[in-house]
Design a protein around this nucleic acid. Structure first.
Lengths: 104, 104
DNA sequence: CCGGACTGCAACCATTCGGTTGCATTTGCT
DNA sequence: AGCAAATGCAACCGAATGGTTGCAGTCCGG
């Protein structure tokens, strides 16, 4: 496993996308609704939502003629878990090497 | 606080950079040494290292005429912590809203 | 049933970005 | 001292990316 993670970070590596995410973390909103609050076009937001949905960070909820989105915190936490694991592994290995070096 | 995080994700949003990071997580290496193992130029790697150092994910250790780098796992874990916190917050709020909605 | 609100698709534009080549500079080792 | 190895800087290139405008399609409400 260990499937890339990179696409997720790519999705998170944009200020506008974070703006969208934090709002969706507070309440469900449609693309048009977001377009009113943000300084960009609705189409731009639609693209961002597609990217976020692709990364599993957001979920679409069709409701009548509009589509509301909500942020998936669990996804973010899962990524956090992987990151923490990797970080610990790095520090662990380097510490082990240092120990060996000091023994010489 | 809550300073952007975005630059860090930008640094992590590249496959080559992860390749570099994982190798530096195993052992310290110089830019030239990395250039031998990876399918890109040394200059490209130098740029990546600069970006990673900027994000605090890597630390330079000058040693004679070469500069060895090592991955900073603690930094990654710190970011993981922030992410987890945010994710939990999102799910918390949405759950609270759902509870209120069901009470109607 | 028809008009307005919302979404979807496509072309296009400017900027950023990953990567390369080329050259200058520093620094260690014999 | 002098050569080889390592880094640094700069210009340049193609592809990806965030954003826009414009238009076609869909779907609820009076």
């Amino acid at each position: 496993m260990t499937k890339s993670l990179v696409p997720v970070f790519a999705a998170l590596a944009d200020e506008t996308r974070w703006d969208i995410l934090t709002r969706l973390g507070a309440r469900e909103l449609s693309a048009s609704a977001l377009a009113i609050e943000l300084p960009v076009t609705r189409q731009a937001i639609a693209k961002h939502l597609a990217a976020l949905a692709d990364a599993g960070l957001v979920q679409a909820a069709p409701s009548g003629r509009e589509i509301r989105y909500r942020a998936i915190g669990a996804r973010l936490s899962a990524v956090a878990g992987e990151l923490d694991r990797i970080g610990a592994e790095w520090d662990g290995r380097l510490a082990r090497i240092r120990t060996i070096a000091e023994r010489l």
